[in-house]
Every structure is written in structure tokens, then in C-alpha cells.
């Protein structure tokens, strides 16, 4: 099972009510057979853009991130349940980034164009395309090396 993150913006309200909303969200995850790994409180702050939800325009929000593990097929249910919650302004589920193993290719990218691997590949592709690999041109079989009729 993969680890996901549920980022939620909650309506500004007292602490006890926040706990109730978080409990509601986490029970919806538990009901779908998920496990909660961590709940992060990113604090209350002004939203970068105003959002209207459930008929109210919000300009401030409490930011929370719940990292959890759940079967991928149940994510839609969790998301829709949060979506129906009146106290949640906005919610998104993101997959947690895996540790990416890659080499920095900046040095090759800074080379002049004919030395860049991607440009070399592009030139090769264009050459192949010009040759029309797999396609044959029509032969007139006139025995002449020019086209005898008027074009």
C-alpha cells in the first residue's frame, strides 16, 4: 500500500471544534481500512486566494496535513467524504514522493548545442526521418534516370 497525504484547509474555529473535524476526517480514513501515520498542523494563516465553499467566502484557514496509508481504490470515497464536510474548505490527496535516484545533468545541458545529448539525439532522429525508414518510394521502371513526361 502506498502512503498518501491528505491536505486540508479547515474553517477558522476554536481548538475543540478543530479536533472534532479532524476526528471526523480520520474516522472516514479508518472506515475505508486505512492507517494514519501522522497528523501535521501547519497553523492558521491567510489564504493566498479567497475560496468560497458551502456558500461562504473564506479568506483564512487552518492548514492540516494527514499522512496515511490506504488502498488506492478507497481514495475517492475519502476525498468525497471530506468534500461533503462543511467545515473543510478545501482538501486534496497527494501521493508521497518516493526517493528519486537521478544524476544531475546540468553540465551536459550547459554545453553548446551540438554537444548536448538531447540535440544529438534530435539530429539523429531528423536524419532517420529524412531517409523514410520502412517506406519505399514509387519506381516508374522506365529505364531512365529522369522523369520523361511533363510535370
Amino acid at each position: 500500500m502506498l502512503t498518501y497525504e491528505l491536505s486540508m484547509l479547515l474553517r477558522t474555529m476554536p481548538k475543540e471544534e478543530l479536533a472534532v473535524v479532524l476526528k471526523r476526517a480520520s474516522t472516514s480514513i479508518f472506515n475505508q481500512g486505512g492507517i494514519i501515520r501522522n497528523i501535521d498542523n501547519l497553523g492558521a494563516r491567510k489564504m493566498p486566494y479567497k475560496t468560497s465553499n458551502h456558500g461562504v467566502v473564506h479568506k483564512q484557514a487552518h492548514y492540516f496535513v494527514i499522512s496515511f496509508t490506504a488502498p488506492p481504490s478507497k481514495l475517492v470515497t475519502i476525498e468525497s467524504e471530506c468534500h461533503r464536510d462543511v467545515d473543510i474548505i478545501r482538501n486534496r490527496i497527494f501521493k508521497v514522493n518516493e526517493n528519486a535516484n537521478f544524476e544531475c545533468t546540468l553540465e551536459e545541458e550547459l554545453k553548446p548545442p551540438p554537444y548536448r545529448p538531447e540535440v544529438i539525439k534530435m539530429i539523429e532522429d531528423a536524419r532517420k526521418k529524412g531517409k523514410k525508414v520502412g517506406k519505399s518510394t514509387f519506381k516508374f521502371n522506365t529505364g531512365l534516370d529522369y522523369y520523361p513526361f511533363q510535370r
Binding site: 491536505s7 484547509l9 489564504m47 493566498p48 486566494y49 474548505i89 497527494f94
Partner: peptide, 15 residues
């Protein structure tokens, strides 16, 4: 894009 979508970052300006 993720951050803007989750309502953490503005779309048309920098904070």
C-alpha cells in the same frame, strides 16, 4: 502546481 492546487500558494503573484 500541487501547492497552488492545495491552496497553499497563490496563482497570479508571489506571497
Amino acid at each position: 502546481t500541487k501547492s497552488q492546487n492545495a491552496g497553499m500558494m497563490p496563482y497570479y503573484n508571489k506571497e
